[in-house]
């Protein structure tokens, strides 16, 4: 059973604790156009339907890094940016126009790193409204020492 702490405090969070989720509006073509421009990733696969069809994908797909950007927000809305030590993900499924991404996370462990600094290991993922997991990864967050 996953319990949600209210209000959430990452410094006292325990393994199994759910992290506050981040729900995004449906991915629109404008979302991808803005991300294309802002990210500098101008791969036409994400904004040019003709190119995406010719590549055999049917239509444009979202940048994996858009989901990772949402996952990053899920972390930093609770944690000061400087506390983030590591952040990784695997991209598991394509995100398409209309997909509504929700990011969730859960504390996996509290541990001390090689230097003896207390850290939190957090599983973080992005899923579509049908439950399909688009990206799943992990973050390591430094806890305040002392």
């Amino acid at each position: 059973m996953v319990k949600t702490l209210t209000p959430f405090d990452y410094t006292t969070a325990q393994p199994g604790d759910a992290w506050p989720a981040l729900a995004m509006p449906p991915v629109a073509r404008l979302t991808l156009a803005l991300y294309c421009g802002a990210s500098g990733d101008h791969n036409p696969l994400h904004v040019d339907s003709d190119f995406a069809r010719a590549a055999g994908l049917g239509d444009v797909i979202a940048h994996g890094m858009l989901s990772m950007g949402y996952m990053g927000r899920t972390l930093t809305q609770q944690v000061p940016l400087g506390a983030l030590r590591e952040f990784s993900t695997r991209f598991l499924a394509m995100t398409r126009i209309g997909d509504q991404i929700t990011c969730t996370a859960q504390v996996i462990a509290r541990f001390n790193d090689a230097q003896g600094m207390p850290c939190l290991r957090v599983a973080v993922s992005a899923a579509g409204h049908n439950g399909e997991v688009k990206a799943a990864g992990e973050a390591i967050i430094a806890l305040p020492s002392g």
């Binding site: 791969n43 890094m65 952040f87 993900t89």
Partner: peptide, 14 residues
């Protein structure tokens, strides 16, 4: 070939 490329994994160490 760019049309065949997908992003499989990404990791950062800060």
């Amino acid at each position: 070939e760019l049309p065949k490329v997908l992003h499989g994994e990404q990791s950062f160490v800060y």
